[in-house]
């Protein structure tokens, strides 16, 4: 068990309490007290994921959580841009009279072991151009793409590098990608 990071705990408490304030919209003392109790209860029930696991493993001390927040902001900006591009591509495919799609599956692996990074990559893939994460097992991703050319940022390892930099993981080199034409071929 890693030691508790008090800055991280403080940031999470503040976020949860802000969430309460927005949802409740009443600021009399008794509502605030109920809110504080709820926040404490949520933190207690989820202590494994909230307090311990978000502590960055490598360096930076207690304030590393703030640097993490900044990297998150940069990542979200990049993601929003990518979402816009993705949607224009999907829109052009949908509206195209002959619909030039050529769906295939592709499979690659990452070396990260942390669940948070793997999930972040899965959601990023789904939101970025022409690709949807279909399966994720022990760091092995199965991705459905509308056309092979749309999966280029995945093949070159660009998306993986971005996600790795947010949570401070090893980026690694371009992944070995296998193209699979059908679910039947996946079995072998």
């Amino acid at each position: 068990m890693r030691h508790r990071n008090w800055v991280s705990l403080g940031v999470q408490t503040a976020l949860l309490f802000a969430f309460w304030l927005v949802l409740s919209g009443r600021y009399e003392p008794r509502f605030l007290i109920v809110g504080a109790l709820s926040v404490a209860l949520v933190l207690l029930l989820n202590r494994d994921i909230f307090v311990l696991h978000t502590v960055p493993e490598s360096g930076g001390g207690h304030w590393a959580v703030l640097a993490l927040g900044w990297r998150w902001l940069l990542y979200v900006a990049w993601l929003l841009y990518d979402i816009a591009v993705a949607n224009i591509q999907v829109a052009s495919l949908v509206l195209h009279p002959r619909m030039p799609i050529d769906p295939v599956l592709l499979r690659f692996s990452v070396s990260w072991r942390r669940g948070a990074t793997q999930v972040l990559l899965a959601n990023s893939i789904t939101l970025t151009p022409g690709t949807v994460t279909v399966d994720l097992r022990d760091g092995e991703y199965t991705v459905h793409t509308l056309a092979p050319r749309l999966a280029q940022p995945l093949v070159s390892g660009e998306v993986q590098k971005r996600v790795a930099s947010v949570l401070g993981e090893e980026a690694g080199h371009a992944p070995a990608v296998t193209w699979i034409g059908s679910v039947g071929a996946l079995e072998q």
């Binding site: 789904t126 399966d135 679910v183």
Partner: peptide, 27 residues
């Protein structure tokens, strides 16, 4: 923004694991 991609992923994974075949132009 967080929930929709996750729900999509859960559904496609269910489809893949029960061997639902993909549509392919080559076929």
């Amino acid at each position: 923004g967080l929930g929709n991609p996750t729900a999509t992923h859960a559904l496609t994974r269910a489809a893949l694991r029960s061997r639902h075949e993909i549509w392919s132009r080559r076929e």
